[in-house]
Design a protein around this nucleic acid. Sequence first.
RNA 1: GGGCGGGUGGCGGAACUGGCAGACGCGCGGGACUUAGGAUCCCGUGCCGCAAGGCGUGAGGGUUCGACCCCCUCCCCGCCCACCA
Length: 831
Amino acid sequence: MSMNERYEPQSIESRWRARWEESGAFRAGSRPGAEKRYVLEMFPYPSGAMHMGHARVYTIGDAIARHLRMRGFDVLHPIGFDALGLPAENAAIKDGKHPGERTRENIVSFRADLKTMGFSFDWSRELATCDPEYYRWNQWFFVKMLERDLVYRRTGKANWCTGCLTVIANEQVVEENRCERCGSQVVEKQIPEWAFRITAYADDLLAGLDELRDWPERITTMQRNWIGRSEGAEVDFALEGGGAVKVFTTRLDTIFGCTYLVLAPEHPLVEQVTEPSRRAEVQAFVERMKRTDALERTGEGAPKEGVFTGALAVNPYGGGKVPVWIANFVLAEYGTGAVMSVPAHDQRDFEFARKYRLPVRVVIQPARGERTPEGDALAAATTDDGVLEASGPYSGLSSAAARSRMAADARAGGFGAPTVRWHLRDWGFSRQRYWGTPIPIIHCDEHGPVPVPEKDLPVLLPPQAIITGTGEPPLAKVPEFVNAPCPRCGRPSRRETETMDTFVDSSWYHARYLSPRDDARPFDPAEARRWLPIDVYVGGPEHAVMHLLYFRFWHRVMNDLGLTQEREPCRRLVTQGIVNGPDGRKMSKRWGNVVTPGPMVERYGADTLRLFILFAAPPEKDIDWSDEQVEGMSRFLARVWRIFHARQDCFRADEAALAQAAGPWLDLRRRTHRTIKKVTEGLEGDLKFNTGIAGLMELVNELYALEPRGAPERAAVREALLALAVLLSPFAPHAAEELWHEVLGPGARERLLATEPWPAADPALVAADTVTIAVQVNGKLRGEVRAAVAAGEAEVRALAEKEERVRAHLDGKTVRKVVFVPQRLINFVVG
RNA sequence: GGGCGGGUGGCGGAACUGGCAGACGCGCGGGACUUAGGAUCCCGUGCCGCAAGGCGUGAGGGUUCGACCCCCUCCCCGCCCACCA
């Protein structure tokens, strides 16, 4: 045999990729008797070239998938493209190239990039959401959800992105009212739109979070906050002139401290309640608020402003009258758009009351400790629960007890009821854009919006649309598309010209992978029984709300449609950190710190890049690109290569001789088996690829330190080399295949390491027979002794007391106590 | 303001369940090999100190024979949410 002396990744890598591809080794469903595992990474939007974030996500997922496959599972590890969306359309506005054409080209180059990384995808299941074969099922789901009243049309304030020129969802509006996608200002616009009734699942989505124990807590917390359940009560304050203001509060126990009400400027009652003498002032305020954008009006630090309407309202509990104000900080769309203000026990109300010299009335006292000061002595609101006072019949009750009793009394008295409010809003998914799924609706003068019948799906996206970026739906300018007969009466009607949010595509693609060519239904429920839920899902934490919420919502809908067996789409979620530039800043053209995988793979090979990504830090942490560390990984692989080359004489060693390995050779065998254990643990549970790889490095270092002579020694080296190749294979699969085949020789020509069984560590070798025990005096390290694993306190103590440095510290002192931890340390406590 | 993470050598990061802090890699220093070395192999590398020894996991306190780990007070950094009633 003659191994190449030099490690040359380029030739090795393409060769093994070809072997994997022709062997069908990564085809899911090839092990019908085996337990399944579904490993999924969030699919990419195919922009021109793959970037480091993609390289990281798929490298992490691939290590998991490869390991599980070697553990004997039938692994589903698919890939596809999230191919509809704005970037292709925005680029079209600039250069006129059709988004479809651009996307196809991008997919071709992106696919090639993915392939050079050697990911073990089942390419036979590849999908692209821009294919009518895919998006027709978006339309199918739309129609099914319409039938179930989970889709509706609403007119109201929608979030309009001034950059994307389309309506976007609440979840897509990020801080300072900017667009999550392009960063442009988002304004409110009165527009009719289609929405999914995700709020119907609010309770269920919230309750389901408790079962997601293998999701990062921060993700479930973010979802919990986003869903935002708050329990409280609605109460009516009767108006003097008739009618009532309904307020929502979570602190009904403080209602006797209510000294005024505040309505949102948009509240429908504003006009009615305003006293004629106040009308001018109130109208001016309302007008001004309308002109001020939401950010300025309700953003951080915006000063609280308001005006008195002149109206008085009656507290339903105490009968006292309170003035009705309007103010900038009350949001029309949350709760009832009206709040009862309790300045003593709510900081925001407190600030407002001080500014406008409204009374402050303390009605809650702490259960223990000092009384809350009153009047000018009160510097801030006290917001903790406590004991009620000056609250009529409820005085003396605890806050919690008061809340439930007062809510019950409100219901009995017909002036209110306990209520639950949600932060979650319905998902508005209409987009005034071209490159999306057409909404399958025909507007008929007679019948209104009529869904396109299932047999007429898909409604195809017309290729000839002119994309101008004016904010008008481009489809509206294609008469061949727009004009269609009403499915119900046949009269000339107009198609809906808006398209769907692309988050629809990513809400159920995980299910489409199960039977991607099925043209009779979105996916085969039998396959769903086999493969769902996803066992491990890898992606960025930026999808904590938005994708991951929609995805959970959609899975529930599919479950309610009888398509799947379970409520939750995914058992375990792994969120990976980002890859920053070498300067520690986010990679960006602006900083000139962008490093792309392509050139790195060309220069060092995919295995080196993969190792760098996995070794730099645990998956969830951000990492900085480092040329030096990449060099280090490349050196490591070359070092591995050289030790195989240098130990070729061990490749044919007789395994039977292993039992005779002794001394350092037995230590080597121990190291080998401990490494198996360490790498295996790093691939399970907490994913710690970095320490697993460190273990492999230690094994390599030990191999370099030993020169085998006899048969048992060569057998021990062969065992180590084989373990090294196998354990390396989830991380650096190409080099691992090559080295493994070198050791096994022609006898293994037909086999693939990728589908070989994962090794088991021999427990007898993992357990050491002697251990180093630290010797402490008063908790300070003064020496160490070697002792048998089973050595007891007396034996270790005797050994320790022989140590010179230990003796020096024990000399002339009384040993008060000896603490002995078997296999670890002995501590002499002296006085 | 609220929630969730973090803070360990010059750098990235290790450390099981309270038991030898700094594995492994990078960087740096030295040596070997070599016509050469920015290749390779070997050795060293937390800080102070010639040494013995002392000091060290953001700061301060506590519990303990023993604390990166548990408790209290505080500082700093990151991410997410935020006039949500």
